[in-house]
Amino acid sequence: MAVLNEKMIENTSLNRKDILWMKIIKQRQLLVLCVPFMIFVLIFNYFPIWGWIMAFQKFVPGKGIFGSEFVGLANFKEAFTDANFINAIRNTLLTSVLKISTSFVSAILLALMLNEVRARLFKRIVQTISYLPYFISWVVAVSIVYMALSPSSGIVNEMLVAMGIIKSPIAFLGEGKYFYGVVAFSNVWKNVGWNAIIYLAAMTGIDPEIYESAIMDGAGRIRRILSVTLPSIMPTIKLMLILNLGNLMNVGFEQVYLLSNPSNIDASRTIDVYIYTYALRSGRLSYGTAIGIFNSTVAITLINICNYISKKIDGYGIF
């Protein structure tokens, strides 16, 4: 009896293997289409994780990962006594929270306003214009921001002085205390139109009958926005909030790096910027990798927490 059972199991497992192989042979053309590209993903997205070993070494480029000396957790210990790294965590979190909250509120506001516009052509023109900055590089965007904020000829300073809000022009990029504001504002300027798309899409899905019955009940337009439109897009808002919170540790290297300079570095030194300007450029590769691992670990944890929360709320997660 026992022998028979074993044989049966063996047979079925053999069959299953056969079926798999038959499928593979039958779908060989599909495999030709995607396996080469999967190898690219493996190399360029997964191989770098192998390099994490560096964080536990005193890595010397000439010796490679196999030849370098192991130092345990020394690099991680150093990070938490490094005042600049602590400063970088603080800057990352501050910039991120400010950026997320401003871009969030501005995108929802813009979508609500566009949704109220009845002149189709006007709406289209406004939308087309509002997407433009999304497609330009941060180099161009920062170049433009720099011109607008220039103390000598920038429009922002000229207007603020003309309106009597400030007495003399401010060097917005020359001082740390204005830095977070500049990052948040330039981010809104660049992305608000693009970010509004998703909310506008959610609004087109609202059943017009709800509006009609709201009118019957005597609700004015502001009432309708607050009691119909806003609650209807709540699921989208929630989803976007969760996605954004998952990205809390990822402030966007390009923007911050391009806006940073020696005179505002105490505010502009985010973790990414610190890894590049300090670790990579001065050759402290192991230390930089350790900081990077810290950042990735926190980010992955945050994403998982957010995913868990979103599953609890809506029944489905981000992934």
Partner: peptide, 30 residues
């Protein structure tokens, strides 16, 4: 293709890279 034999392996393999990267320095070394 829903009948693709490795669909359930390759899809998460790809999606994972959207949320995660090895970091600047390991990529540079690679």
């Amino acid at each position: 293709r829903r009948d693709f034999v490795f669909r359930k392996v390759f899809t998460p393999f790809l999606v994972f890279t959207m949320y995660f990267s090895g970091g600047l320095i390991p990529t540079f070394i690679l």
